[in-house]
């Protein structure tokens, strides 16, 4: 049911954990629905770039794989570029997701956007 890429990211997640003293934190989802993601970022202020990004995720295989993929896609990107990472971009990078997983478990890009918003609100721009 899952692509090889999804299984790879599920079994060997990239950037799992929490960034120390994060500049931005984004949490999305709800344990009642079975999916919660927490994205933490470190931002290079001068370059406006994501220096480091990590995730922690409660959820199904797709939830964990999309979280892992979003951190790979975001790492090193400028904030405005990282904000362009959509659910579709994440799913495509994973070689597709089963239709029922597109909405409920593909929240990682929202988590990343929230972390960027959080960074911006803390830095007043």
């Amino acid at each position: 049911m899952y692509s090889e890429k999804v299984m790879d990211h599920f079994q060997n997640p990239r950037n799992m954990g929490e960034v120390e003293n994060p500049d931005g934190v984004g949490e999305v989802g709800n344990p009642q629905c079975g999916d919660v993601m927490r994205i933490t970022i470190k931002v290079d202020e001068k370059e406006d770039r994501i220096e480091d990004v990590k995730f922690k995720t409660l959820g199904c295989g797709a939830a964990i794989a999309t979280s892992s993929m979003v951190t790979e896609l975001a790492k090193g990107k400028r904030l405005d570029e990282a904000e362009e990472i959509s659910k579709k971009v994440v799913a495509d990078a994973l070689g597709g997701l089963p239709p029922q997983k597109m909405h409920c478990s593909n929240l990682a890009s929202d988590g990343l956007k929230k972390a960027i918003e959080d960074y911006r609100s803390r830095h007043g721009n």
Binding site: M7, F10, G34, D35, G59, C60, G61, I64
Partner: peptide, 9 residues
């Protein structure tokens, strides 16, 4: 934790 990820693992 969530059951599908347990089952898959």
């Amino acid at each position: 934790i969530e059951g599908e990820s347990i089952m898959l693992s």
